Amino acid sequence: MQESIIISFQNVMKRYDEDEEPVLKGVSFDIERGKFYTLLGPSGCGKTTILRLIAGFAEPTEGTITMEGKVMNRIPANERQVNTVFQDYALFPHLNVFENVAFGLRVKKLKKPVIEQKVQEALRFVNLAGYGNRSVSEMSGGQRQRVAIARAIVNEPQVLLLDEPLSALDLKLRTEMQYILREMQQRLGITFIFVTHDQEEALAMSDWIFVMNKGRIEQSGTPNDIYDEPINRYVADFIGESNIVPGVMIEDYLAEFNGRRFECVDAGLRPNEPIEIVIRPEDLEIVPLDQGKLRVRVDSQLFRGVHYEISCYDESGQEWLVHSTRKAEVGGEIGLYFDPEAIHVMRFGETEEEFDRRLEAYGEVEAHGK
């Protein structure tokens, strides 16, 4: 195992009830040290179950979980170098801020001067110096969250698990805490594993994202990978807004949709293979009709602050969503232009494993042809 890998799941299946479908279905992945990972997906997809398995709050039904090369399947939670920040923060309301942060250190029976030093350092780290005597019930949601983080990091874990810790915050505070969490992770240099159903949150904070669906990982990669190269319709729909239309791959770098052929940058599919085309709304440019690759009629328009969100329909009835700084006339016709790089080609229902195998096979064919 590579030294950089701190946690590894190998074909992990989790079933809570023998008569029910597994919550996790043969999940495999590696977690490297010092990075910010996000488990992204809707409720019930298995992301919190993964956190529980890492923390030791649950055991896998099948498969192996290792930490630093050691099998952890039956290792109790209190023997793992892992701490968790829960959605409701799980603070003790009868204890002040200092005592909440110090709780784990007192359980370890550390000496009083050591506890004092470590707690004050943790509070300074989360910008709560001087708040030690404050009652947690008197604090804002963002402050309580930082107390929960201080309580977690004071124990110097190798991995910090965060289970939707921003979901109860209002939009402004949530955005502020995204910056704070990302900065904390980079300053601490420890591994963060963050659970959310919010794709904007995942894209903003992560080094690496696992997109989950029904107990499986649909796709994993950097935020740019996930956004620019979705593996299938599920990921394209879940990560941001997308225009997804059916088409045919004519040949390498040439796709057909809406009755016309367009140059693209994708290759490796069979000639005349059915495909789905993804074009992001921000990659569509409003131009005069004679300059457009698509001719559409504007149906509605909303101002979103930094851009207009414009809904259009082409002659076939296909809807196109456009994000533009230019205002359009509702009911009027406009042209839409896009570069070949804006076209992303997907196979129907393709998984990440199938995608990897196809790329590998295509590379071998190219090498053999040369």
Rank of each mutant, 00 (worst) to 15 (best):
M1N: 08
Q2C: 05
E3R: 12
E3H: 14
E3S: 12
I6D: 08
V12S: 04
V12E: 10
R15M: 12
D17G: 01
E21Y: 06
K25S: 06
E32P: 09
F36G: 05
T38D: 00
T38S: 10
L39W: 00
G41K: 01
L53D: 02
A55R: 12
A55L: 08
E59F: 08
T66A: 12
M67N: 08
R74V: 00
I75C: 06
P76S: 07
E79N: 11
T84P: 03
F86E: 03
A90C: 12
F92Y: 15
P93F: 10
L95H: 04
N96M: 02
A102T: 00
G104C: 11
G104M: 10
K111H: 09
K112W: 06
Q117Y: 12
F125K: 09
N127V: 07
L128F: 01
L128G: 00
G130C: 09
Y131G: 05
G132A: 13
R144A: 02
Q145W: 06
I149A: 08
L160F: 10
L161M: 09
L162F: 02
D163R: 08
A168G: 01
L169F: 03
Y179L: 15
M184L: 15
F192P: 02
F194A: 05
F194T: 05
L203M: 14
M205H: 08
D207S: 00
I209C: 06
M212F: 12
I217K: 09
S220M: 11
N232G: 11
Y234R: 03
V235C: 12
V235W: 01
G240S: 14
S242I: 03
S242A: 14
S242M: 02
I244A: 01
P246Y: 01
A255I: 13
P271S: 03
N272W: 04
E273H: 00
I279A: 00
R280F: 03
R280K: 13
P281H: 03
E282R: 07
I286T: 04
D290W: 09
V298W: 02
Q301T: 11
Q301A: 06
L302M: 11
H307D: 09
E309G: 03
I310P: 01
W320V: 08
W320S: 11
L321G: 10
K327E: 15
A328D: 03
G332Q: 08
E333S: 11
F338M: 12
H344K: 12
M346G: 15
G349I: 08
T351G: 11
E360C: 04
E364W: 09
H368A: 15
